[in-house]
Design a protein around this nucleic acid. Structure first.
Length: 396
RNA sequence: GGGCGGUUCGUAUAGCGGCAAUUACUCGUGGCUGUAGACCACGCGGCCUUUGGCCUUCGGGGGUUCGAGUCCCUCACCGCCCA
């Protein structure tokens, strides 16, 4: 199911083929997020031209539709996409609707170059109500105001994911952040590990790849222990999760601590990452697949990603521009429409605006991954990384 | 000719004696990393030693008042109605 094709002698980067019942994925690959079994603002017929290889949906959000999706033939069918799919377990919502919300902390925390521990509490997000209660068995969600809590744990998550029927599924985990202390992180990790086993034991289908998730916060010993533990279980693939920091020089310490302990022959997914630099660094560290809301969410918000940087198409300077969203881009949006038109559609709050932006952004990220694959084949990934970043930082 | 109504930040508005003055849009600047949102935050008269201070503003001119965007007189322009 996973075959490594090329290895970069100067890093852990590799190219490979990941086989699924719905098709083969060339790795490293980007996973496009379609939480509710649809990529927001993107009609299914426009997906193929975006070079998308894999789409991830979410168990938590599809909770109430799992049976219906099963009856209809599974996620890929329901999405009218019929390519490879993945589901997240709902584990991240334990964090995003809980601790993350309460403390206004996000997925990636930037550290300052002087190490002066930037503000993990530098969130401008005001604290909001924690909607999650965690127990050793799973998580209770206050899903609907005024309604009783609902329970999601490892057994149910797997049962739901089997109904939803994606090709790759995730074990149910508890995501912790750098704001959690060692003691709590250790307790949460223990839980995640136990849940990982429960997930394996709960699995009844043999045609889905269940990935085990590595946690451990920002504590090296916990991360290492987690990688070893998960590696020892018969998962066909791995995912690395958590809310964590990234140093000013671009290092994800958690990757350096964990990947060497993960079986080389099995695919590794980096959950919820990322931006251009993160992808390049992630691949160098040995990651095979990524997923992130950045291309789609920012597109809806007017953020256009290009090889020269990101810009906001809302700005008035684009109101008359006859240029495409990105010069020399061959995506469906860039060959058919100019910046002024997309700008105007955004100002008019026409959802078509988001559609053009999404087509472009998804194509951009998928295309970047294709270039990364090529660079690995040609053994010039590090050089490609440095050049690409130098160009993208010039100006936008 | 007569009678009303109006003239406030780019636009549209609020304001009925203590106001550098409401709201919306525009505009500007940030942000968004396993989707709790096609979103969020901040700024938008000028200057400064900026959790504050000073100056100049509400069509023009004059007046009343400690104090006027707010009240009075007058001029200009716009709108509606009656001749």
């Amino acid at each position: 199911m996973f075959r490594i094709l090329n290895k970069d002698p100067n890093s852990r980067a590799r190219t490979g083929l990941l086989e699924t019942p719905h098709g083969v994925i060339e790795t490293p690959a980007y996973t496009i997020v379609g939480t509710y079994a649809s990529i927001r603002h993107l009609p299914p017929e426009l997906i193929p031209a975006t070079k998308t290889q894999l789409i991830i949906a979410n168990t938590y959000h599809l909770w109430g539709r799992a049976e219906e999706i099963a009856q209809a033939g599974g996620l890929a069918k329901v999405m009218d996409w019929n390519g490879p799919t993945m589901t997240d377990s709902g584990g991240f919502q334990v964090f995003s609707l809980g601790f993350s919300r309460e403390h206004g902390i996000g997925k990636v925390i930037r550290l300052r170059s002087d190490h002066s521990s930037e503000t993990m509490a530098n969130n401008q997000n005001k604290p909001e109500r924690n909607l999650v209660r965690i127990t050793d068995e799973g998580a209770w969600f206050k899903k609907t105001p005024g309604q009783p809590e609902v329970f999601l744990g490892p057994e149910l998550s797997i049962a739901l994911q089997e109904k939803i029927g994606a090709d790759i599924i995730m074990s149910f985990d508890e995501c912790t952040s750098p704001l959690h202390d060692y003691e709590y992180t250790k307790i949460a990790l223990k839980r995640t590990h136990r849940w990982a086993k429960v997930c394996l034991d709960s699995q009844t289908r043999s045609d889905q790849l269940l990935y085990g998730i590595v946690q451990g916060g920002e504590f090296q010993d916990l991360r290492e222990a987690s990688a070893k533990y998960i590696n020892a279980l018969p998962f066909p693939g791995f995912a690395i999760g958590g809310s964590f920091s990234k140093s000013a020089d671009g290092d994800f310490n958690i990757l350096n601590w964990t990947i060497s302990h993960l079986d080389e022959a099995r695919p590794r997914h980096f959950l919820g990452i990322g931006k251009i630099e993160d992808l390049l660094d992630g691949v160098l560290a040995g990651i095979d697949t990524f997923d992130c809301v950045i291309p789609t969410r920012e597109a809806r918000h007017g953020g256009i990603w290009t090889k020269r940087g990101r810009y906001d198409i809302h700005k008035a300077i684009y109101s008359q521009s006859k240029d495409p969203l990105e010069e020399d881009c061959s995506c469906d949006a860039c060959v058919s429409i100019d910046q002024a038109t997309v700008h105007t559609l955004f100002k008019a709050k026409d959802t078509l605006a988001g559609q053009y932006a999404i087509v472009h952004n998804i194509f951009f990220f998928n295309n970047l991954m294709a270039q990364i694959r090529q660079a690995i084949k040609e053994q010039r990934l590090r050089q490609f990384r440095n050049e690409f970043l130098a160009n993208s930082k010039k100006s936008a």
